[in-house]
Design a protein around this nucleic acid. Structure first.
Lengths: 177, 177
DNA sequence: GTCTATAGGTGGATAGAC
DNA sequence: GTCTATCCACCTATAGAC
């Protein structure tokens, strides 16, 4: 992966999370990076290509993060705590979940993006279910979907209220019950 | 309230919930209603004025709905069930929560819209807390915020997965525990 | 790979006739 | 109130030079 291409993805991810995918232009990205807007088209022919790449890139990053946690943190409770802390840090940067944002803008993106989003959330949910199963829950998949829903919703509310603690407060019950 | 003004609000609400507030134009609304785009500016000088009106209109509608339920449905459990059924119906119309959508697009709207959104969610949460208190919960406000978070997140996931049951499945535990 | 230049379209918004 | 006409800014995308 080219340095410029990676930089585009990183800035585009931040802008998507802060303003929405429809809330920034190639010119916005170019100005921030210090290149010209036409150069971005060399890496991402259309804006929809950029959307697809954003979801896939985030999917890979999070998959790697989950795998690393699986070995570096020995208990599922600790892993879930790490996930909560990670998403909580979004709030202070005025960021929403990237895939949650694109899911909100669902009817403004292509079917391919929609499929990639489903894939992302399916894998996220599967990983969460694995943790809950290890914690002894019999309804681990339902618990996982519930955790995921509450995470997305609490991120929306937390940013609106400028209170990162909302995320933690809404999710601690999944760890301490 | 003028008929045309109301029609604009109704169509704008649907488009906001389906495509996002940044995902439609005055021309889109005009074509759907059968008027000219310039006419909409007579009622809503700027698009931000429209956003403010949308949140206030929805806030009033929901406040009225809550008040009516308070007398027409005698048990808090039944009222929460009605709320769940109401939001579940969004999914089949490919709609997300209007205020949730604008909360996602937070950094693309004015501070006034942000304040109105906070007001909407505060009142929604207060009403929910009242129901949980009546059901005998001591942590009614926390329960209310949790319900609200799960509702918003499950609406995102349900629409993505084209499965309205996700909303009901994620929220029934708040009624049956 | 990155640039300049530009095409072609759409956006929000306003002026002024009716 | 609703219209026509129009302005100006911005957007996505492409062609072609370097």
């Amino acid at each position: 992966m080219n340095d410029t291409k990676l930089k585009i993805l990183e800035v585009a991810a931040i802008y998507t999370q802060q303003r929405g995918f429809g809330g920034f232009s190639y010119l916005d990205l170019a100005d921030e990076i210090g290149i010209k807007a036409a150069s971005i088209h060399y890496y991402f022919k259309s804006k929809d290509d950029l959307a697809i790449a954003l979801v896939e890139h985030t999917h890979e990053l999070h998959t790697d993060g989950f795998q690393n946690m699986q070995t570096s943190i020995d208990r599922p409770k600790g892993r879930l705590e790490a996930v909560i802390a990670y998403f909580q840090s979004y709030v202070v940067e005025e960021k929403f979940c990237l895939c949650g944002m694109l899911a909100a803008e669902l009817n403004s993106v292509s079917e391919i993006v929609s499929q990639r989003l489903e894939s992302y959330f399916n894998d996220f949910q599967t990983w969460l279910a694995k943790q809950f199963k290890e914690m002894g829950y019999s309804d681990s998949d339902n618990k996982a979907m519930s955790f995921l829903s509450t995470l997305e919703g609490s991120l929306l509310l937390a940013r609106l209220r400028k209170d990162p603690d909302v995320v933690r407060n809404m999710l601690t019950s999944y760890i301490n019950d």
